[in-house]
């Protein structure tokens, strides 16, 4: 993983400067990143138990080695449509305030080390729902990577309900 990451990041020239590691993920074709230290687990498709009366963003709950994890549908949080049902979705497990959440995304990509100088704040013109849940954007060679603000996303959910 690390090899690929450094490859990706330092494709063209050897660069210096501080870097941060991110786990990349794809949702609806868009590349996202989550600070690697926030990630506890990556899960393949799992069976979810329904939680009646839960807000629409909550997809259900699951049992992860004896701990109950609340599954959040990130597509719903970002106001995206549901993928076709054949898509096997993956999840990223994060912890906040001693509680576990699994963020359902489309699929997980590589871990990248990104240079701080490539970081930019979210453009003011971005969809408000996205702006609220992004810390910023990294300019990659071929793509733009939106950094998901996981704590904020979860906090908004808690406050909304």
């Amino acid at each position: 993983m690390i090899d690929t990451a450094s490859q990706n990041a330092s494709e063209t020239r050897a660069r210096t400067g501080t870097t941060r590691d991110f786990l990349t993920l794809r949702i609806n074709g868009q590349l996202f990143g989550i600070p690697i230290l926030q990630v506890q687990d990556v899960l393949g498709e799992v069976h979810l138990s329904r939680v009646p009366l839960a807000p629409p963003q909550v997809a259900g709950s699951l049992n992860l080695r004896g701990r109950i994890v609340t599954a959040i549908d990130v597509r719903k949080c970002l106001g995206l449509s549901q993928p076709d049902s054949t898509l096997k979705r993956m999840s990223v497990v994060v912890e906040q305030d001693h509680e576990l959440y699994s963020l359902m995304i489309d699929r997980v990509g590589d871990v990248l080390s990104l240079y701080d100088e490539d970081f930019e704040h979210t453009p003011a013109t971005l969809d408000p729902a996205w702006r609220a849940m992004a810390t910023g954007i990294y300019r990659l060679e071929s793509d733009l990577l939106v950094i998901l603000d996981v704590p904020k996303l979860l906090k908004t959910l808690t406050l909304m309900n």
Partner: peptide
Amino acid sequence: SKILRNIEMFSGNTI
């Protein structure tokens, strides 16, 4: 979970 805490019907969950 905190997100679900205001649903009064449930007092908890279990495995």
